[in-house]
């Protein structure tokens, strides 16, 4: 198991380098010159050139990239082009907010999704199952920005029981986390349902029944543990989608998280900021994937043999 974790960790290094590469060069392809933006409208050619010179933007791209890469490994993400503050400082302020949001969202995804999936699977093709699956289908189909705005309109504007935006108390978390987690919950619900139905058909469930095990014990002890195996993978994948979603949701609910920071920085062509943000987001994703793999292995020890 330890060897497995070490090996997986080593596999993540090229992934991270690849990410920096992609991030760096895609930003170069984005139209718009940061020096021009920084200098402001109507600045002279000389001023722009001077800014370029000062920031090292006139050097060859590859040199800029390797320069960037080495400093990243030293923990130096550069300074913001906008306000000359270290990128890392800004990220460290923003990241916990996004992680908190992501945590509650994934919680909703898992709890809501699995509960709905189990309810559906216990009596397949029943009215309850049909209703749950229709809601799940809606959850997958509705775009999150629209869903978020609807939630905001209903709970904050109409009912006025939850705050509209911002990030101060746990109450502020509910709507954005629901917006972000709903799609995932729907996918997890469908996955749990089909996985449960698959497991219920297995021979060992019949064995448990033949032993005289109570139906509820069959579902939770014999069924769910086996059904969870594919669901864990889906949750892991959902986490990626979820990180992407923070960008939108943080903008809608005016939360100063990492996602919003990246959006704002893109608008400003604040290259180091964008790169740092995306890099950290990718790192988080890689770590989560690693965790999922470890969990998956824990739940399914047979993989070790194959």
């Amino acid at each position: 198991m330890l060897m497995f974790i070490v090996r997986r960790l080593m596999q993540t290094i090229p992934v991270i380098i690849g990410v920096t590469f992609v991030v760096f060069f895609i930003m170069q392809l984005v139209p718009g010159d940061p020096a021009v933006l920084l200098a402001g409208e109507g600045a002279s050619k000389e001023t722009i050139n001077a800014i370029r010179e000062q920031l090292g933007l006139n050097r060859p791209l590859l040199v800029q990239y390797f320069d960037y890469l080495t400093s990243v490994f030293r923990g130096d993400f550069g300074v913001s082009l906008k306000n000359s503050q270290p990128v890392l400082d800004e990220i460290l302020v923003r990241l916990p907010i996004t992680i908190e949001l992501a945590f509650f969202s994934i919680l909703i995804t898992i709890v809501l999704g699995m509960a709905a999936g189990i309810i559906s699977a216990i009596k397949p093709y029943s009215l309850k199952d049909t209703l749950v699956m229709i809601v799940a289908l809606l959850g997958i189909s509705l775009p999150s920005f629209w869903f978020g705005l609807m939630l905001m309109y209903f709970f904050s504007v109409k009912l006025q029981i939850l705050p509209v935006a911002g990030w101060d108390s746990l109450l502020h978390v509910i709507l954005p986390a629901l917006t972000l987690g709903a799609g995932g919950a729907a996918i997890v619900a469908r996955m749990t349902r089909s996985s449960m139905l698959e497991v219920i058909r297995q021979d060992y469930i019949r064995t448990a029944r033949a032993k005289g095990v109570r139906e509820s014990v069959i579902i939770y002890k014999h069924g769910l543990r086996n059904a969870l195996i594919p669901v864990i993978t889906v949750v892991g994948l959902q986490f990626g989608a979820l990180l992407g979603g923070t960008v939108l949701v943080e903008s809608i609910f005016a939360i100063n998280g990492l996602g919003r920071m990246i959006v704002d920085s893109i608008r400003m062509r604040d290259l180091p900021m964008v790169q740092g943000g995306v890099l950290v987001a990718s790192l988080v994703f890689v770590v989560v994937n690693l965790l999922v793999d470890v969990l998956y292995r824990f739940f399914n020890k047979r993989i070790e043999l194959n």
Binding site: D203, A210, K211, K221, H222, R225, N226, F299, R302
Partner: peptide
């Protein structure tokens, strides 16, 4: 079931719960 009348099945490979 399993107390007064018990049953064993054909496929020992799949008839036991793999995670217990």
């Amino acid at each position: 079931r399993g107390n007064e009348i018990s049953m064993i099945f054909q496929e020992p490979m799949t008839s036991l719960n793999p995670v217990l």
